[in-house]
Design a protein around this nucleic acid. Structure first.
Lengths: 114, 114
DNA sequence: TCTCTTTGCATAGACGAACTATGGGAGTGG
DNA sequence: CCACTCCCATAGTTCGTCTATGCAAAGAGA
């Protein structure tokens, strides 16, 4: 084997996962699987949220008090854990949005110079 | 001590440092200190490149063959290591630019939905 | 001359987010 | 009953960035 395949890591810009989750939940409460689907769909399959990234992120956000979780039954009659934003979570979404736009704006300024 | 101060990590979007360095070097060969200054200046002080991030990144890029290094004398008569892009480095810049714009485009699509 | 600031390079270790790999359970359709 | 999709979760690894620290030499000022 001649190692033709380079690892395809870094599927999404690190540091943006929590923001994407917060944004998704700001539309409506959703379970983990649904969150991943929603982001993938809206991004036209560009962003793929791995389960091994998603659930630890949701745990962190629970601990920080940004979301609340509740076991319910999904549209497909399976038990699922629905997450909803708290007030702190909504604030955090604002913080992350403005920081992201500041950062990406700064990066673009650097990248646009001739 | 009551731990009032939260750590201020994540100053720049992770995963973009190498791209910013490549872009900077595509303008002209530069030494490490100059690269950091250039990025900070162009980003209007928003992006700060820590030395502990910069030099390891340059080492990685040397190993990957994206840059070449040469000891010279800086404008201030100090010895400094000047880095310049290789052909592979220029290609890599293109790759990273297009991937970045694809990613940030996808993120913005998700973030812009009502 | 001595010391301080700025310029400049570099590494070790900590840290944390995201990934890989893996496991299980419970409905649905053939 | 078997495969498939849905849905949750964690252990362990990997990797990039940060903190902290060290060295060294030029120039300014006292």
């Amino acid at each position: 084997m001649t190692n033709t395949k380079t690892k395809n890591r870094n599927e999404l810009l690190p540091g943006t996962l929590e923001m994407l989750i917060l944004k998704t939940l700001s539309i409506e409460p959703m379970h983990g699987y649904g969150i991943a689907q929603h982001i993938q769909l809206l991004s036209a399959q560009v962003l793929t949220i791995e389960e091994g990234s998603l659930y630890p992120a949701l745990q962190r956000m629970l601990i920080k008090g940004w979301v609340l979780a509740e076991w319910k039954i999904s549209a497909n009659h399976r038990r699922a854990r629905f997450y909803k934003l708290t007030t702190a979570g909504k604030n955090q979404l604002g913080v992350q949005e403005s920081r992201f736009s500041q950062m990406s704006g700064a990066i673009m300024r650097v990248m646009k110079t001739t």
